[in-house]
Design a protein around this nucleic acid. Structure first.
Length: 876
RNA sequence: GAGGCAUUAGCUCAGUUGGUUUAGAGCGCUGCCUUGACAGGGCAGAGGUCACUGGUUCGAGUCCAGUAUGCCUCACCA
C-alpha cells in the first residue's frame, strides 16, 4: 500500500492517460460495421480561450461520447473552430494597428495573409485546452470553417440556393456596426435599456412669423437628414398644419408636415421628425409618403457630406455639438431624461446604426417549414422539451436572413457583376462562362466579384454535413449522418440550431441530428452571467490544475440539469476533488488487503450479493438518465452509490478485522465490482477511472477502461435490497443509541429482539445477523421474551429492539422521544384511516392501492402498540 | 405590447403516466469522533402547512383556473 499516496494527485495521471488514449487511437473513428455515434462540436471561435461555458458544453459532449464508446458504438466526435468573421477581423485589425499598419493601406490579399498568419499562431488554442478537460475528440478530423472542404461547402451551398431562387439581393434597412463597418443580423444585436435624453426641438412653420411645431427626438444629430415632420391624422393639435411646411433649424431647409397613423399622439410632443435614412420606421413612413432619403452618416458613423454641417464628426460628438447650436438660436425647448432600448453589436459593442444598403438575403420562409415540422413532431427531439416553444415562436415569425458582411475575413460571396447583371458560380471561370453567353465581348477583368463575405453562420449551419465532406462525397456522410446529438446553449437556438435543421433538410432531406441537448448558462452565485467585463469567470485551466479535470467535470455536471443554469461555485469542484480522493482511498484500502486462506464469511456473501444488486440498480438508472439526458442525475446517482453504498457500507461490511487477511472470493469479487464501478463512472471522470482501473489489476496491452465493456443492466433483486435496507436501519438505530448515550465503538453492545420468530425474519437472508453484529459492534445479538429493566429500546423495520445498558438512563428524555414517535404514528394512522373510511376511496381506487393502505394501517397499528407498551413500561 | 418558463429545506435542485408508510438529494448547518483507506474523513441529528386562492378527483407537490413574485424570448415609441 505504501506505494499509493494518501491523496489522489491528478496532474501527471491526466497527461499520462490522455497521451495513452491518443497514441492508441481510441478517439479516431473510421466507418465500419458498428453503429455510428457522431457528434459535431459547436465550433468555438478561433479567437476564443476556454471559458466556463465551453467546459460545460464539452464535458456534456465528452460524457455522451465516452458512454457511447463504452456501449460499443463507433464514436466520432469532430472538433473544430469557426472563423468568426467580425471578431477575428477586429482582432487582426487591432493587431495591425499596433504594428502601425492600417487596414485601408492593405490590399485584400495582403490583409488575408496577415489574418491567416494570426490564425495559425493564435487560433486553436482552445482546442488544446479541451484536451486538458479530457475531451475525446477525433483530432485527425479537426475542421475549420475556412479550410478547403468547409469553404467549398459554403460556396456550393450558396450557389445552390441561388439556383433554387432562395437567395436574393435587396436594398434594405439593416443593422450596421460602424466600428466593424459591416451589417449585422438581428440575432447579432443585443438590446439593453440605457439612459438617454429626449430633446424637444421647435421647427418654424414656413411662411409664419412665430408659429412653430415642436418635435421630440433622441437623435438631434440627424436633423440634417429630416425629410418630413409626421403627426397623427387624428391629433387635434396639429389639424391646422395640413399642407404646411416646417423649416429645419440651422439648415433652413423646408420639409412637409405629413399625417401618418404610425405616430403616437401621447409620446413626446406628438410630432415626429422623419429621417428615412436613419430609422427603420421612418424609412417605412418615407416609402408611404414618397419622401426623400438623405443619408447623413458615413459607414464609420461620422457625419457625411450630405449633412452639410459637422461633416466628418462622429455621430455622438455631433450630438453633443449640435445641442448648443440649437440652444443658441432658441430652438431647444427642453431636454428630458429618457430610458431608451439601445441595440449594440454583439461583437464590438458599438451602438448599431440603422442603415440602408444593398445586401444578400436568404429566403427563410421556404426553408422554415420542414425544420419547424421536424421539431414539432420530435423527429428532432429537444432536451429539455420546453425549448420547443421558443423555437416555434421564432420559426413562425421568421425573417429573411441577411448573409452578406462587409468584411474580408470570410468566404467571399461567389457573385459576379457585369453592369446590371449578376452571375453566381462556384468558380470565376464558371461565372465568366455564364456572363459570356449574355455578353459575348466581355473579358475576365470586366467581371467584378462581390466584395462582401458571407456571414459566419453560413458555415456553421452546414457543419453536420460539411464535417463529413457531404458536399464532396457520400462515403462518410452516409455512415455518420444524421449525427446523434447536438449539445449547445439555448442562447444560440436561432443563430444555429434552427439553421442547422433547415440546412439538414434542404440538402440532405434528413434531420442533422436526432437530439438537441440545451445546456444552461453558467452563472455566478448572484445569478449573473459569467463575463469578462464582470471578471466573475474563473480561470478554467487554473480550476483544472487545482481540482483535477475529473473534479471540475464532476463539479460542472453535478449541478447542471439540461437547460437549467449552472450557478457555479468552486465548492462544486472541490466536491469533485474530494470524490476523486474518496475513490482513491477506497482503492488503497482494497489494495492493502492481503489474501488469506480462509473461508468466505457468510456476511461477505450477503454483502457481495447486495452490492451487486445495488450496482444493477445503478446501471439501470444511469442508463435511463443517459437516454433522457439527465446527466446531472446520473452524476449524483453514481456519487451516492460509490460514496455511500460502496465505500460507507459495502467496504465496511467485508473489511477483514485489523491485521487479518481477506478470503480469495471476497477480494476477487470486490475487485471485479470496483472495476465495473470505474467503467460506469468513466464517462464522467475519465482520468481517475483509467488510473484506478489499471491499479486494480494487471492489464494486458489494450485493456483500457476507456474501451472496456459497459456492464449490462441485469434484473434487480428488489427483495434482497429491501432486506439489507432493514439491516441497515437496525444498524443505524444502534449507532444512534451509541451517539445519544456517548458510547464508544469499542464498547460492545448487546442487542435483544423480542421474539424468535422476528429474529428469524432477519435470518431470512443468511449473514444478516452477522452483518448487524459486525457493523453495529455487537457483543451479542439474541432473542428474549424477558427484557431487562435497564436499557434503551427502539423500533426498526417495525420491530422492537432493546439495548441493555448499565448506565443511568434519562427517563424523561426517553419518554419525550417515545411520545414524539407515538404522536407521529397516530397522525400517520389517522391519515390512513381517513382514506379507508371513505367509501368512495375503497370502491373506486385500484385494489392494489387499497391493499397497500390496509397494510400501512396494520403496520402502523402494530408499531403504535409496541411504542405504547414501551412508554407504559418506562412510566411504571 | 405578444408569448413562454418557473415558484418544493438556509442555498442549488430531483420528484418521470395523479396513489409505495403524512416529501428526496447534494451542499451548508449542529453534536460527537485523532492511532487502522480517506479530516479532501467517520457517525448521528436538526431543517419543508411543496408561493397564494379556488376548482377537478375517492385521492393533488403532480391536473385546471385565477392571484402574486421572479426569469426569459420576440417585437418595440421618436
Amino acid at each position: 500500500m505504501s506505494e499509493i499516496t494518501s491523496r489522489y494527485v491528478p496532474g501527471e495521471v491526466e497527461d499520462k492517460w490522455y497521451q495513452h488514449w491518443k497514441t492508441k487511437g481510441y478517439f479516431h473513428s473510421v466507418p465500419d460495421e458498428r453503429e455510428s455515434y457522431s457528434i459535431v462540436i459547436p465550433p468555438p471561435n478561433v479567437t476564443g480561450v476556454l471559458h466556463m461555458g465551453h467546459m460545460l458544453n464539452n464535458t456534456v459532449q465528452d460524457m455522451l461520447a465516452r458512454k457511447a464508446r463504452l456501449d460499443g458504438k463507433n464514436v466520432c466526435w469532430v472538433p473544430g473552430t469557426d472563423h468568426a468573421s467580425i471578431a477575428t477581423e477586429a482582432k487582426v485589425v487591432k493587431m495591425l494597428r499596433e504594428k502601425g499598419i492600417k487596414k485601408s493601406d492593405l490590399s485584400r490579399d495582403e490583409f488575408m495573409s496577415h489574418a491567416w498568419e494570426w490564425k495559425e499562431k493564435y487560433g486553436g488554442i482552445i482546442l488544446n485546452q479541451l484536451e486538458k478537460l479530457g475531451a475525446s475528440c477525433d483530432w485527425e478530423r479537426t475542421a475549420f470553417t475556412m479550410d478547403k472542404v468547409r469553404s467549398e461547402s459554403v460556396i456550393q451551398a450558396f450557389c445552390d440556393l441561388y439556383e433554387k431562387g432562395k437567395l436574393y439581393r435587396d436594398y434594405r434597412m439593416v443593422n450596421w456596426d460602424p466600428e466593424a463597418q459591416t451589417v449585422l443580423s438581428n440575432e447579432e444585436v443585443l438590446y439593453k435599456e440605457e439612459k438617454g435624453k429626449l430633446y424637444h426641438l421647435r421647427y418654424q412653420i414656413e411662411g409664419s412669423k412665430d408659429e412653430y411645431i415642436t418635435i421630440a427626438t433622441a437623435r438631434p444629430e440627424t436633423i440634417m437628414g429630416d425629410s418630413a415632420i409626421a403627426v397623427h391624422p387624428d391629433d387635434p393639435r396639429y389639424l391646422e398644419m395640413k399642407g404646411k411646411k416646417a423649416i429645419i433649424p440651422i439648415l433652413n431647409r423646408s420639409i412637409p408636415i405629413i399625417f401618418d397613423n404610425y405616430v403616437e399622439m401621447d409620446f413626446g410632443s406628438g410630432a415626429l421628425k422623419v429621417t428615412p435614412a436613419h430609422d427603420i420606421n421612418d424609412y417605412e413612413i418615407g416609402k408611404r409618403h414618397s419622401l426623400e432619403t438623405i443619408d447623413v452618416l458615413n459607414a464609420n458613423g461620422t457625419i457625411s457630406d450630405a449633412g452639410q454641417i459637422l461633416v466628418g464628426m462622429d455621430r455622438f460628438k455631433a450630438r453633443k455639438a449640435i445641442i448648443p447650436m440649437l440652444e443658441d438660436i432658441g430652438h431647444l425647448i427642453k431636454t428630458e431624461d429618457y430610458e431608451k432600448n439601445v441595440g449594440r453589436s454583439e461583437r464590438t459593442n458599438s451602438i448599431v446604426e440603422p442603415r440602408l444598403s444593398l445586401q444578400w438575403y436568404v429566403d427563410m420562409k421556404s426553408l422554415a417549414k420542414p425544420a419547424l415540422d421536424a421539431v414539432e413532431s420530435d423527429e428532432v427531439e429537444f432536451f429539455p422539451k420546453n425549448q420547443k416553444n421558443l423555437y416555434r415562436h421564432w420559426m413562425e415569425n421568421i425573417r429573411d436572413w441577411c448573409v452578406s458582411r462587409q468584411l474580408w475575413w470570410g468566404h467571399r460571396i461567389p457573385a459576379y457583376y457585369y453592369k446590371e447583371d449578376v452571375y453566381v458560380d462556384v468558380s470565376t471561370e464558371g461565372a465568366f462562362a455564364k456572363a459570356k453567353k449574355d455578353h459575348p465581348n466581355i473579358t475576365m477583368t470586366d467581371l467584378k466579384q462581390e466584395e462582401d463575405v458571407l456571414d459566419t453562420w453560413c458555415s456553421s449551419w452546414l457543419w453536420p454535413i460539411s464535417c463529413f465532406h457531404g458536399f464532396q462525397s457520400r462515403e462518410e456522410l452516409d455512415y455518420y449522418y444524421p449525427t446523434a446529438v447536438l449539445v449547445t446553449g439555448w442562447d444560440i437556438i436561432f443563430l444555429w440550431v434552427a439553421r442547422m435543421i433547415m440546412s439538414g433538410y434542404e440538402w440532405e432531406g434528413k434531420r442533422p441530428f436526432k437530439d438537441v441537448y440545451f445546456t444552461g448558462m453558467v452563472r455566478d452565485q448572484q445569478r449573473r452571467k459569467m463575463s469578462k467585463s464582470l471578471g466573475n469567470s474563473p480561470d478554467a485551466l487554473k480550476l483544472i490544475s487545482d481540482f483535477g479535470a475529473d473534479g471540475v467535470r464532476f463539479g460542472i455536471m453535478s449541478s447542471s440539469p439540461a437547460g437549467g443554469d449552472l450557478l457555479f461555485d468552486e465548492k462544486l469542484c472541490e466536491q469533485g476533488r474530494n470524490f476523486s480522493n474518496k475513490i482513491w482511498n477506497a482503492l488503497r484500502l482494497v489494495k492493502g488487503w492481503e489474501m488469506a486462506d480462509v473461508d468466505q464469511p457468510v456476511e461477505n456473501k450477503l454483502a457481495i450479493n447486495w452490492i451487486t444488486q445495488k450496482l444493477n440498480e445503478v446501471v439501470q438508472s444511469v442508463e435511463d438518465d443517459f437516454n433522457q439526458y439527465r446527466l446531472s442525475e446520473a452524476t449524483m446517482t453514481l456519487y451516492n452509490f460509490i460514496w455511500n453504498d460502496f465505500c460507507s457500507w459495502y467496504l465496511e461490511m467485508i473489511k477483514p478485522p485489523f491485521g487479518e487477511g481477506i478470503d480469495k472470493e471476497s477480494l476477487e469479487s470486490t475487485i471485479q465490482l470496483f472495476e465495473n464501478m470505474m467503467i460506469i463512472l468513466h464517462p464522467l471522470m475519465p482520468f481517475l477511472t483509467e488510473e484506478v482501473y489499471h491499479l486494480l489489476d494487471e492489464r494486458e496491452d489494450g485493456d483500457d477502461c476507456i474501451i472496456a465493456q459497459y456492464p449490462s443492466a441485469n434484473e434487480v433483486d428488489k427483495d434482497l435490497i429491501k432486506g439489507v435496507a432493514g439491516i441497515q436501519s437496525i444498524i443505524g438505530k444502534v449507532r444512534e443509541v451509541r451517539a445519544s448515550k456517548g458510547l464508544k465503538q469499542k464498547e460492545k453492545l448487546t442487542l435483544l429482539v423480542e421474539s424468535k420468530e422476528e429474529i428469524e425474519k432477519i435470518y431470512s437472508h443468511p449473514g444478516a445477523i452477522q452483518l448487524v453484529s459486525k457493523l453495529a459492534y455487537l457483543g451479542e445479538f439474541k432473542d428474549t421474551t424477558n427484557f431487562p429493566e435497564e436499557g434503551v429500546s427502539f423500533m426498526a423495520d417495525n420491530r422492537k429492539f432493546f439495548v441493555p445498558l448499565e448506565l443511568e438512563i434519562n427517563v424523561e428524555e426517553e419518554i419525550e422521544k417515545l411520545t414524539k414517535e407515538i404522536k407521529y404514528a397516530e397522525g400517520f394512522l389517522q391519515s390512513v384511516a381517513k382514506k379507508l373510511s371513505n367509501e368512495r376511496f375503497v370502491n373506486n381506487a385500484p385494489e392494489q392501492v387499497v391493499a397497500n393502505e390496509k397494510k400501512k394501517q396494520s403496520d402502523g397499528q402494530a408499531r403504535l402498540k409496541i411504542l405504547k407498551e414501551s412508554l407504559l413500561k418506562l412510566q411504571a
